[in-house]
Simulated assay, not measured.
Amino acid sequence: MTQAFSSKGIIPLIACILFFSSCQTQTEDQATAGKDDAAAQAPLEPLTSENAVEVLTAFEKENPDSLILISTRHGDIKLRLYKDTPLHRANFVRLTKAGFYDQGEFYRVVKGFAVQGGDSDNRTIKQGPYKIPQEFKPKHIHKRGALAMARYGDEQNPDKESSSHNFYIVLGEPRTMEELRAFEAQHGVKYTPEQIKLYTSIGGEPALDQQYTVFGEVIEGMDVVDKIAEEPVDSQKWPRTIVQHKIKVVEQ
Rank of each mutant, 00 (worst) to 15 (best):
Q30H: 06
T72H: 00
V55T: 11
F106R: 01
K111W: 00
V53L: 07
A52D: 13
Q26A: 09
A98Y: 02
L47F: 06
P64A: 11
D65S: 14
S66C: 11
L56G: 02
L44A: 03
N51Q: 12
Q103E: 13
P64W: 09
A58W: 02
Q116D: 09
N122Q: 11
A90D: 04
F59S: 03
L56C: 06
Y107V: 05
G75Q: 03
T72Y: 01
V93M: 09
D29K: 09
R123H: 11
D76F: 07
A38V: 10
L95K: 04
E60N: 15
E45G: 02
A31C: 04
E62M: 08
K83R: 14
T124G: 06
V53H: 03
R89F: 11
K111S: 10
A114K: 00
G75L: 05
I68P: 00
Q116E: 12
T72D: 03
D29M: 06
A38D: 08
L87Y: 07
A114N: 05
L44C: 06
S66I: 09
L47P: 02
I68M: 10
D37K: 15
F100L: 04
R89Q: 10
N122F: 08
G104R: 01
G99S: 10
G75E: 04
Q30T: 07
G112I: 07
A40G: 04
A58M: 04
H74K: 01
E50T: 06
Y130D: 07
F92L: 03
R94F: 07
L67A: 05
R123F: 02
L69T: 10
P43A: 04
A40Y: 07
V55P: 02
N51Y: 12
A52C: 14
R89T: 12
V109A: 03
D29T: 12
D36R: 15
D119A: 14
E50H: 06
K131I: 06
D37Q: 14
V55D: 09
A90S: 08
K111R: 13
S71Q: 12
T85W: 12
N122G: 07
Q30P: 00
T27V: 15
L69N: 11
N122E: 14
Y107H: 13
T85H: 13
G104N: 06
K131C: 07
R94G: 05
P129W: 06
R89C: 08
N91A: 11
P43W: 00
H88G: 01
G75A: 03
H74Q: 03
D37P: 10
K97A: 07
Q41K: 02
S71R: 05
G118P: 07
E28V: 12
L87Q: 04
G112V: 09
K126L: 10
E62H: 02
A58V: 10
A39R: 15
T124P: 01
E54T: 08
G75C: 03
S49A: 02
T96Y: 04
A42Q: 05
D36Q: 15
Q116V: 05
E105A: 13
E105W: 08
T32Q: 12
E60L: 08
P43Q: 02
T124V: 10
G99H: 01
V93N: 05
R73T: 10
P86W: 09
G112Y: 04
L95F: 12
S120Y: 12
A33I: 08
L67C: 06
A42L: 07
Q116Y: 03
V93F: 09
N51T: 14
G99W: 01
P64N: 08
A114F: 11
A114L: 11
E60T: 05
